[in-house]
Design a protein around this nucleic acid. Structure first.
Length: 547
RNA sequence: GCCCUCGUAGCUCAGCGGAUAGAGCACCUGGUUGCGGACUAGGGGGUCGCAGGUUCGAGUCCUGCCGAGGGCGCCA
């Protein structure tokens, strides 16, 4: 179905256009789309437009006159209930209550996809997220990126995109060497050796237990192996555990892309060669530099060290070129605040390689604080994502991670989430769903026939508000996709649940004395259940039938 | 020092250039001889960090300053 806001916008623009044709308004190029606001006061209707205020200067008319003329020329429409003009020049639209409630039938017929969009039906999107290196367990910060990326992917799918969820990891370079060394030292320590980790090494307990595990499996048979062998063992073990953690959060990747493959297929050399051809790469101090300043960037950067090893920038550029080769219409990098600074350099590199970089978007997210303490992987003293899921459960983690705008810091009070879990917003939403299920179960037992339902009996303000909120799911998906802002979904979920709870206390659904009203309300509730379940599904949160 | 993000109620935070700035928690007062009280109705509580600017209109856009976090490596 077309977006609610778009339909209203079209109505108002038609009215303005018709007024112009009738000579009641001066000719002036109208915008293709007008922004609507949701007024705070009920007498201002469901939607307001400030178009008359914006046109006033260009048309040399008073805003009120313009609003009056548009109102007089609004075309007939089933969805249009009432319109008013208010000072200083707003045009207010009230949706038809009967039309609103008639939409319940449509939602029921269309099912969970009722709010899906068709804007991007033949488009391909790729979302890269988490992208943790295989050097330790996932942190709560990775969890935030994971939930943001996965939910955004769900939203893109709902908007019509064919989505690829992708996880990129660096499995070459210095840090992997340190990982291998760290594990070897832990292994030797378990055998009674007196070697110690340096500050550069990974201190986490997970390598201690992995070292001990190696002794069970190989006894002292690995003593002669070098760090590279231990690196392979650690990488495989840690990566597997990371994906088990993601599984617990309902996050499953489509593609695991590793840095090593870019070395093996010659991608890195191709980037360097091409940059050299374009005079955008040069040699200095034994290293190869990327001439970022020549492209308008701040500083030139090394892409191949004097040791012959690439820095992370080169594979990052090659990887994004690879994404471009795969012909995605939209590429989203979900990055933590600590990694986002490299993004402009990568774009410059990809652009220099001859690709259109407009398709590549950044979704940056700030860190997560647990009880005010920042977590660090190297320190070995952190709350892992697994521990967080252990404490509060996957549903709460997913919902909480999306309650804040990505660019805001997120304070996750683990004690509060655990102790006062009754008051968690996620339960509020889930409770609404469970309540609905309970009602529908009773209705099913009563054996109502839903053949011939009259919707014009749904006249209570709580009923129309509930229906309006339900229909706004499409608009919410649209906006979340346009702005890459998956957190709009949690706000929407709370609003819809709140509308339902209000409706529930105002309107008794199963009323033995009024069959017509009962049937209409059952249908309304069935539609709301579909919308609520769909919203939770997009969030990756379960929709329990009882709790 | 330079760059990025944030600064809104006691706390945690929403807020799509529009009207009298909202929610949850906390505090206070009401509501089921009723479909799930994990609910609901209401109340108190605000110099939207500060100062300028753009605009008919700024919490929202621009500039400067202050504060918090992050980044500024031949680490990723």
């Amino acid at each position: 179905m077309p977006l609610l806001a778009k339909q209203i916008s079209d109505l108002i623009l038609s009215g303005a256009c018709l007024a112009q044709e009738a000579g009641k308004l001066p000719s002036y190029q109208l915008p293709a789309y007008i922004h609507l606001t949701r007024p705070k006061r009920r007498e201002w209707g469901d939607y307001s437009s400030a178009l008359p205020l914006q046109l006033s200067k260009h048309m040399s008319c008073s805003p009120i006159d313009i609003a009056d003329q548009i109102q007089n020329h609004l075309p007939q429409s089933a969805m249009l209930g009432d319109s008013t003009v208010s000072v200083p020049g707003f045009l207010n639209i009230t949706l038809s209550g009967e039309w609103l409630c008639s939409q319940a039938e449509r939602v029921i017929n269309e099912g969970p996809s009722f709010a899906d969009l068709e804007h991007h039906l033949n488009n391909k999107a790729q979302v890269e997220f988490v992208s943790a290196n295989p050097t330790g367990p996932l942190t709560v910060g990775h969890g935030r990126g994971g939930v943001i990326g996965d939910t955004l992917s769900n939203l893109l799918s709902a908007a019509g995109y064919q989505v690829t969820r992708e996880f990129y990891y660096n499995n070459v370079g210095q840090q992997m060497r340190r990982l291998g060394e760290s594990l070897k030292i832990r292994y030797l320590q378990s055998l009674g050796g007196s070697m110690h980790l340096s500050e550069e090494h990974y201190q986490g307990e997970y390598l201690v237990s992995l070292g001990a595990q190696l002794i069970e499996e190989h006894s002292d048979g690995l003593i002669e192996e070098d760090w590279d062998t231990f690196k392979d063992i650690a990488e495989e073990s840690i990566a597997a555990k990371q994906h088990l953690t993601l599984d617990r959060l309902n996050i499953v990747m489509d593609v695991l892309f590793n840095e090593q493959s870019l070395y093996e297929d010659g991608s890195l050399d191709r980037v360097v060669d091409k940059l050299r051809q374009k005079k955008l790469a040069y040699d200095k101090d034994g290293a190869v530099w990327f001439a970022i300043t020549a492209l308008g960037g701040s500083d030139d950067r090394v892409i191949v060290k004097s040791s012959g090893e690439p820095t992370y920038r080169l594979p990052d550029i090659a990887y994004h070129c690879n994404k471009m080769e795969r012909k995605f219409d939209l590429v989203v990098d979900v990055l933590g605040a600590d990694h986002k600074d490299s993004f402009p350099d990568v774009l410059l590199g990809v652009k220099a390689m001859g690709y259109e970089v407009d398709k590549i978007k950044l979704l940056m997210h700030q860190f997560v604080n647990i009880k005010g303490e920042r977590m660090s992987k190297r320190s070995g003293n952190f709350v892992s994502l697994d521990e967080l899921v252990d404490e509060v459960g996957a549903d709460v983690v997913r919902f909480f991670m999306l309650m804040r705008a990505s660019e805001s810091h997120l304070e996750f009070d683990i004690d509060l989430a655990r102790e006062q879990s009754d008051k968690n917003p996620v339960y509020y939403v889930q409770y609404a769903h469970a309540r609905i299920c309970s009602i529908l179960e009773k209705a099913a037992l009563a054996g109502f026939s839903l053949e011939d339902v009259k919707v014009d009996v749904l006249i209570h303000p709580s009923e129309r508000m509930l229906m309006r909120n339900l229909l706004e799911l499409s608009d919410t998906i649209d906006r979340a996709v346009r702005e890459l802002a998956p957190h709009y979904l949690t706000t929407y979920a709370r609003d819809l649940a709140s509308s339902f709870h209000t409706f529930y206390s105002d309107c008794k659904v199963l009323d033995a004395d009024n069959l017509t009203l009962t049937l209409a309300r059952i249908n309304l509730v069935r539609a709301v259940r579909i919308g609520l379940a769909r919203t939770l599904d997009l969030l990756g949160v379960s929709a329990p039938e009882s709790m």
